[in-house]
Design a protein around this nucleic acid. Structure first.
Lengths: 353, 353
DNA sequence: CCTTCCCCGGTTAACGTTAACAGAAGTTGC
DNA sequence: GCAACTTCTGTTAACGTTAACCGGGGAAGG
């Protein structure tokens, strides 16, 4: 038998007050645990609270108190272990400080970026941590929010604003180190998977790659740099095994195929490995591969993947602490920037054991 | 030079109204695009809006309107491609319906589960989709919320409530099929990685495994069932390569080691593969492995992983649609349950090519 | 006994928005 | 010419909470 029940309205302070024979103010004191209330009154109130299944209204509360004890975290891609780790670190700090964390996902689209900012701003979160990639429209809206008075901290988003802190890993250096590592192994023809040369602006690790090639007198052949086709949105923004797989296939079809490949991240690297093995190449003897991020998976590929570890947890922690500071101060503090070092992790995908 | 700027207060309707020489109500009409406003007045108002960088206060608005056009999505583990895909599907439907989605992460802890529910309830979201694993405390709080009138839809959470819909994949059948597949290949000694036999209650795919073994007259040896050590929280809830790796090591040390393994999910399977290869075993000749979820990675392991695909996107979509229906109806509709079929995907980790 | 301080609880007035209603001016229809 | 309707704007009163203030009763201290 299927039945519908009429919808209930939420109990309010006034309902509890009436039921307990006190004023709403007294109930407020009880549920918030501040002010003086006699044990007897508290008892009565708590009884009514649980009898009526009362939950305080955060909207009214936030409106009155002018704060919500909530922050927003904007992520580009939730499927990414990097984002997950970041979120975990942010949450740890914020929980300890008494804040809730609401996560919004932008899927790496400027439009969704803006939608996320707006929706968080509308809800009057006390602050926002933004960890999505930079884009013009998003930056503009972000500037508006910041100038409107919302504390903002950026993680790895290439956007400077005098009133927002920026935390980032040193991806330029990481990309440089990864490439230099391959060069030191004797590789001269090194490919890059994960960005189209014409639109790779802003991808730091790609620029690190270019810099290392140039500094060592090597040519970064445009044909050895592959990424999403036509700059379109064929792949969901960040990174996929599919992108690495397709990219590698393209590289393998070149007349002078690279002897080493630097992939923009570990998943792309895994896809590339898969394509290489399918073509009968041995790793690292026939082809050396480097990834980026050191996701848990990287230690368990075969062979295990050489990669660049970024201090994910630390970035999250530092960003959260910066935001707490920013939210706590009556003035808007001046901008701070922290660039944190990455670390090359050498495994068997570049150096045979 | 470092400088602090004094914090700004947000402009309100009244500020705009004063600046444009109209009443707040008129401004409200302009920013919400309803009611009649002359073109001339609208122009004046919009001018003031952008000049003062006005953003409407969602708290006040929500308080007055008794709705926030926002829903909450509670996930257990954000690092998981399954969760990511789910979130994407939910967001797609919800965006189209005009709702924002705020995501909360519980890290598979009952306490965080409750914290997430409370924080969403406090913010008076219009509805909640819960995709975390069941636990007693969380279920109890969830029941309170539901009975308090918040529309709730569950995804894959083993908890029945007469006023909440439940969407789930048929993990029992999936686990059965995976195991039956191994049995049909001639395996008799089949291990399971990802659950401790004593506390594996509620993990459907594990029960599917047990059922298949029993039905085919095979014994599921307790020593061949491995999971987190001591039921503690050594691994972050869900699944990791590390768990699969350690679990496999344990299985390999048995006197009668299994010839096939069913892992609770793909990441666990990858870890297991890594340990098996390290021990010099060939897959699938010496050891067959099946995973679960069919994450993008699964097609790119070596060998590619046999796994069970669940209709992730569909679950998200169906759940979102159910929630929309639930939020839209004046009555609280009766419970609906949808169990969606899984599909065995055979690859080279069980059957050599 | 009088001051001072601590408890305990009530009263008032917002916080920023919008639903509901009211009214004025112009327009249409017959 | 008058009713009925449309267009525009303003007024009022919440939505549910809490900061700030007020006051009475009792205990403590001189």
């Amino acid at each position: 038998m299927r039945r519908s029940t009429p919808k209930k309205r939420h109990a309010t302070l006034a309902d509890i007050a009436a039921s307990a024979g006190v004023t709403p103010m007294t109930v407020s004191r009880v549920v918030n645990g501040n002010g003086y209330v006699s044990a007897e009154t508290r008892e009565k109130v708590l009884h009514a609270v649980s009898a009526l299944n009362y939950r305080r209204n955060g909207l009214a509360r936030g409106l009155k108190r002018q704060r919500t004890d909530t922050i927003g975290l904007v992520l580009g891609d939730i499927a990414n272990p990097f984002a997950a780790e970041l979120a975990r670190a942010v949450r740890e700090v914020m929980s300890a400080e008494g804040y809730n964390v609401f996560i919004c996902v932008s899927e790496h689209s400027a439009r969704e970026d803006i939608a996320a900012f707006d929706s968080l701003a509308d809800h009057r979160v006390d602050g926002v941590i933004v960890a999505t990639r930079a884009n013009k429209l998003g930056n503009d809206r972000l500037a508006e929010l910041i100038e409107g008075g919302i504390p903002v901290v950026l993680i790895g988003r290439d956007f400077r604003h005098p009133q927002a802190d920026l935390i980032a890993a040193d991806n330029l250096r990481g990309g440089y180190d990864a490439t230099a590592h391959l060069i030191s192994l004797g590789h001269k023809n090194i490919g890059f998977i994960g960005v189209t040369p014409t639109s790779g602006v802003g991808l730091r690790r790609y620029h690190g790659y270019l810099e290392a090639m140039r500094e060592h007198g090597l040519k970064a052949d445009e044909r050895s740099i592959v990424g999403r086709a036509g700059g379109g949105d064929q792949w969901p923004g960040y990174s996929t095994e599919a992108m690495g797989y397709e990219g590698m296939k393209k590289l393998l079809s070149l007349r002078r195929r690279p002897t080493a490949v630097f992939a923009r991240n570990d998943f792309t690297a895994v896809g590339a490995m898969s394509a290489a093995k399918e073509a009968g190449l041995r790793i690292p003897q026939d082809l050396a591969i480097v990834g980026y991020d050191d996701v848990p998976l990287a230690a368990h590929t075969s062979p295990p993947l050489t990669t660049v570890r970024q201090p994910t947890r630390e970035q999250g922690r530092v960003a959260a602490e910066a935001l707490v500071r920013r939210m706590g101060s009556a003035e808007t503090p001046a901008r701070e920037e922290r660039v944190m070092p990455c670390e090359l992790v050498v495994r068997a995908s570049t150096v045979a054991e």
